Simulated assay, not measured.
Amino acid sequence: MSEYRQSDSILKVAAQIRKATTQPWTIMEVCGGQTHAIVKNRLDQLLPPAVELVHGPGCPVCVTPLEQIDRAIAIAALPEVIFCSFGDMLRVPGSESSLLDIKAGGADIRIVYSPLQAVKIAEENPAKQVVFFAVGFETTATANALAVTQAHSQSLQNFSLLVSQFLVAPAIRSICSASDTRVQGFLAAGHVCSITGYESYRPLAEQYRVPIVVTGFEPLDILEGLLMCLRQLEREECRVENQYTRAVDRTGNREAQALLNRVFRVSSQHWRGLGEMPASGLKLHQAFIGLDAAQRFALPDINPVEQNHCISGDIMLGHKKPHDCPHFGQECRPERPLGAPMVSSEGACSAYYRHSQQVKASEHPMSTPNNP
Rank of each mutant, 00 (worst) to 15 (best):
A122Y: 02
F86T: 07
I109Y: 03
S114W: 06
E80G: 03
E123C: 15
F86H: 07
A134N: 02
F83G: 05
I109Q: 10
A118Q: 03
G87M: 08
P115N: 05
L116E: 07
P126M: 05
V119W: 06
G94V: 09
L99T: 13
V131T: 10
A104Q: 05
V131S: 02
A127E: 12
D108R: 14
A127S: 11
E124T: 12
D88N: 08
V92W: 04
C84K: 01
F132C: 02
V119H: 08
E80V: 13
D101L: 01
K103L: 13
G105Y: 10
P115H: 05
I102C: 08
I82V: 06
D88C: 05
Y113Q: 14
L116Q: 10
E96I: 14
F86C: 00
A104I: 06
A104R: 09
K103A: 15
N125A: 09
L116N: 06
L99I: 12
S114A: 09
I111W: 05
Y113N: 13
V92P: 08
D88H: 00
E96Y: 14
K120D: 10
Q117C: 14
D101G: 08
R110S: 13
D88F: 01
E80N: 10
M89F: 04
F86V: 03
L116T: 03
P115E: 07
F133D: 03
R91N: 12
A107E: 00
A104E: 07
L116P: 00
P93R: 00
Y113V: 04
F86Y: 06
A134I: 03
K128E: 04
F133A: 00
F83S: 01
S97L: 13
E124R: 13
I109D: 08
S114N: 09
E80D: 08
P115F: 04
L100G: 15
S85R: 07
I121M: 09
E123L: 15
R91C: 12
Q117L: 12
P93W: 07
V112H: 15
L116K: 13
